[in-house]
Design a protein around this nucleic acid. Sequence first.
DNA 1: CGGCAGTTTGAGGTACGTCAAGAATAGTGG
DNA 2: CCACTATTCTTGACGTACCTCAAACTGCCG
Lengths: 236, 236
Amino acid sequence: MSDPSNPIHPCGACDFYNDSVWQPVASCSVSVLSRGFSRKDLNKGQTLYYQEDENRGVFCLSKGLVALRTYHQNGSSTLLRLAYPGDIIGFRSFLENRPHRTEARALLASRVCTVARRDAQQVVQGNPSILARLASRCISEIDRNHDRIIAAATTSNKQRLIDILLRLMKAHGEQSVECLHMQLPLSRSDLADLIGVQTETVSRLFKRIQADGVFHVSGREIQMLVDPSPRRSGSG
Amino acid sequence: MSDPSNPIHPCGACDFYNDSVWQPVASCSVSVLSRGFSRKDLNKGQTLYYQEDENRGVFCLSKGLVALRTYHQNGSSTLLRLAYPGDIIGFRSFLENRPHRTEARALLASRVCTVARRDAQQVVQGNPSILARLASRCISEIDRNHDRIIAAATTSNKQRLIDILLRLMKAHGEQSVECLHMQLPLSRSDLADLIGVQTETVSRLFKRIQADGVFHVSGREIQMLVDPSPRRSGSG
DNA sequence: CGGCAGTTTGAGGTACGTCAAGAATAGTGG
DNA sequence: CCACTATTCTTGACGTACCTCAAACTGCCG
């Protein structure tokens, strides 16, 4: 399948090809890219890399949901990021050539494409535009972090939990009559690590969210009324 | 002073030259760098750029203290970062070619070196290693943000305020007999925007911090007992 | 059926927010 | 030097949200 003069890009068939950090590259780099390229399917709960692991390459999530988490000395942990399809992960340890500071674990069955470290380095070397695109991904991460810091300072925990539900619903919700619903891919404990409260508080936040009437929560099953406002409002 | 065959690097005399993002560059780029280079002294309270301003270049703080802050719709604001000498600021809007999302204001008399946008772009184009060093600065910012998110979730507000005092004391404290002291360069309101609480709470945190005995706080004047532990410990 | 991890609920304490008033400080003009 | 004002900072009272510890409940798997 590979004509050396016009080799096939390994990401060519991916939904996210147009926004890939590996595209465009010089055609002579495509074969190096292909050499270092591999796909890996992760089961729900499976770990892609552990905290303190050496970097093995640049990872791109093409399907599923991955949690990036750091563990602290006292055994607790913070969920720093939820990675969605199209996201690049592991780029800090790749660019800085240092061990991972987070653990990457699949919350749902996921697919990850990897470009092995050595080959990735070689391709980057020959294509400075990749560096620019990786920097752009870094800046997206900074923007996300800033948004989170701002939200923590200005938004109630209840609203932040709602925002997380909305984001997850957008990615994984299924439409049924008059409502979106999903199986929540995070435990109460995960959600607590994400918004920075205790698991008991998450339980109580769910109760308050449900009382507002938009969401119905039963364990991991979440239902969300879609757009109730177009109906006649007021209590006729 | 400029022999074109071996021009003088504009950052050559800077304390932070060895860690400069503009170093090393091809010698043919030094003249472009010099052309775009300018120094600016900021008075206390003066603004380097405003939120929504177009990017004018890459800024490097060589002296002083600069607060990076974003204002929200409701008029409140969050202090996202304190920039110390050697720090690069404004790099997100430079790299992404977009307006600033933060305002940069000097909290102390400061000196900022600027490489104008167009010239900076030209130098980066000819020296991919600069892109790598800028990416490295991005990653430092991500690391700082992660540390802050983790601290917000795991550390008390009192301890986080102490940590800020220690950092400022390290940068601006003056030694006197048995204690470090400084004039606090941030208002209570700034500190509140930094740790995400109300100004009244900052006042009360200071009272509790003072009660612990290490710090003495009187308005903006902060004194800190240095290393009291080597004295005889225990009571009589 | 029992065991186990995940989740919920309750009771009581602490820290922070909010509103309001008062005290200290800095800046201004005589 | 002293008013005068504006800003910043502190203090108090009270309500709310979250934490902590403990216990009970749920669903799932062996």
